[in-house]
Nucleic acid binder design. Structure first.
Lengths: 128, 128
DNA sequence: ATAATGTGAAACCATATGGTTACGCATATT
DNA sequence: AATATGCGTAACCATATGGTTTCACATTAT
């Protein structure tokens, strides 16, 4: 049972919506049928249905049908992607001196700023 | 120098865009002037300017003018909010048994499913 | 069988979002 | 002083997004 690594893309955009995050928060209590989830929020059931579809395609929830009910279950695994993205930044906030650090670096950058295009960055194309 | 706690809202939505995340990634190397940042990406300079404005209002970057240049500096501090949001989920992926766990919980939920509206959740209103 | 229930899909809509080009304005350069 | 640079803003545009209402479809209850 392998899951392709999945870019952070789909995860981050699924998490961008507050209602969606709240749904995940709710599901931490355990699986719930769509209708019950919907009742918690101030929006229509179809709206929640759409959010659930987004969460499902981001694999942040798993669907499991049972009669005419559809239970949605939290699947936190994709959040690991977010966590590892954050890893790259922890150092910046762990040391309170991030301000100083950045200042120093900005100095150094300004020094050699003349040229030094520093093309060393593996850019992802955010295409069309 | 106090910073209001700031809801995750603005942070998450700022991070939703891949270009914006890439800008932050770039700034981990140190402050850079807007133009230099823009040259790295396949979009126009004004587009980057807008992204920088979003990042700035999310306090994920700090601006610091210097002559006709505007240096942008990473400010990772707001990411702590994301990190603590994630905290609530770590338990779900740390134990490989999240699947089992969720299953068990779904069982229990289904048991008492009749009523138990469980209004105990501090819902944020997504207004409008 | 017939009605009721749980839920997604369709069709719309208004607003948000990300990108573009044209322009304006300081701050260097010459 | 005149020109070149760096960069944000304005005005547009097309598409994405989130919400709504109406409808269709199973599945369960009568």
């Amino acid at each position: 049972m392998r899951y392709e690594p999945r870019s952070p893309e789909v995860t981050f955009s699924a998490l961008a919506d507050p209602t969606r995050r709240a749904v995940l928060d709710l599901l931490r209590q355990g699986s719930q049928p769509a209708g019950r989830i919907a009742r918690v929020f101030p929006v229509s059931r179809p709206a929640i249905s759409k959010h659930l579809r987004v969460l499902k395609s981001a694999r942040l929830v798993l669907e499991h049908r049972e009669g005419r009910h559809r239970f949605y279950q939290l699947n936190a695994e994709p959040l690991k992607t977010v966590d590892s993205w954050l890893d790259q930044y922890r150092t910046f906030w762990h040391a309170q001196l991030s301000g100083l650090k950045a200042f120093v670096e900005s100095e150094s950058v300004r020094e050699k700023s003349k040229v030094r295009a520093k093309k060393s960055h593996p850019r992802r194309g955010n295409s069309k």
